[in-house]
């Protein structure tokens, strides 16, 4: 493992974790007159699992999507694994293969089988030959418990299985960090567990993860740090015990009370 680097002043990762993999500073994003991100900092250490919570419209998805430049911030800087993401000289496609993303709506390619979904970027981005890509895809699908379903099309899979294929598609590229945007929100309750189990295993394998989700029990059990966002700002952050147990801000307290009631 790499030696821990001095952590930045704001948005610092929890102590005892590796060097920062994601380091975003002063992110601004506006849609017309509406400022959705107002100078947000976020630093994520190697192997850290950061949970982002907050009310609807607070900018959680926007923040996450800035981290692989699906959304272009108006101001600020983002480093991922040492790459300056917002620099015009950066090859964004090369950078993105180090940043896996999982979406609320799975977004599997419906015209391809599970295995083909995973293989596409292996073949076209990593330029692996067919045999190698097939083997890598098979291993990734095994990791998410879908070895038996490799040749199924997305429509032949349950929502939970589809989301696990989407996770396999991302991890097959061996990203340095995984971004999850409400990965279980579109799932029937009985299918949530399977996806969370896969995420738990990823974490045990040392994957760096940023997760936007309302799964508070999972956050309590698995997160290193919880970030609470409101109105485009990071209102507070800390270990789950602190954020859920003794939040400093009234808004955080109100939000957690409201979520826990459900």
């Amino acid at each position: 493992m790499t030696s821990p680097a001095p952590s930045p002043s704001r948005g610092a990762p929890a102590p005892g974790l590796g060097r920062p993999i994601v380091d975003a500073r002063g992110l601004w994003k506006r849609y017309g007159p509406l400022a959705v991100l107002k100078g947000v900092d976020l630093s994520v250490a190697e192997r850290e699992l950061v949970f982002i919570i907050g009310p609807s419209g607070s900018g959680k998805s926007t923040l996450l999507r800035c981290l692989n430049r699906l959304e272009e911030p108006d101001d600020g800087s983002i480093h991922v694994d040492g790459i300056e993401l917002l620099s015009p000289r950066t090859d964004i496609n090369a950078a993105r293969r180090r940043i896996g993303m999982v979406f609320q709506s799975f977004n599997l390619y419906p015209h391809m089988t599970a295995r083909q979904n995973v293989m596409l970027a292996l073949r076209k981005v990593l330029r692996q030959d067919r045999a190698q890509a097939e083997a890598v895809a098979a291993r990734a699908l095994e990791r998410v418990g879908l070895a038996e379903r490799m040749d199924h099309f997305p429509a032949q899979l349950s929502g939970g299985q589809q989301q696990r294929v989407a996770i396999a598609r991302a991890i097959a590229l061996e990203p340095r960090v995984m971004l999850f945007d409400e990965p279980t929100s579109a799932l029937d309750p009985e299918l949530v567990g399977g996806v969370l189990n896969v995420m738990r295993e990823l974490r045990q394998d040392g994957m760096t993860m940023v997760v936007v989700s309302h799964e508070m029990a999972f956050a309590r059990a698995a997160a290193d740090r919880v970030v609470f966002m409101a109105d485009g700002e990071k209102l507070e952050e800390g270990p789950p015990a602190q954020i859920f147990g003794e939040p400093r801000h009234e808004r955080t307290r109100a939000f957690i009370r409201q979520i826990d009631r459900h």
Binding site: N68, L70, N93, A94, A95, R96, R97, I99, G100, M101, F103, S105, N107, L108, Y109, P110, H111, L120, A121, K124, V125, A166, R169, A170, L173
Partner: peptide, 24 residues
């Protein structure tokens, strides 16, 4: 979401258009 999924894995614009969007 199809564009976003493909682009997030590092596929370029034309690769995404040709391999993911056009077949659908």
């Amino acid at each position: 979401g199809q564009w976003e999924a493909a682009r997030s894995t590092g596929l370029g614009f034309f690769q995404t258009l040709r391999l993911v969007v056009l077949p659908q």
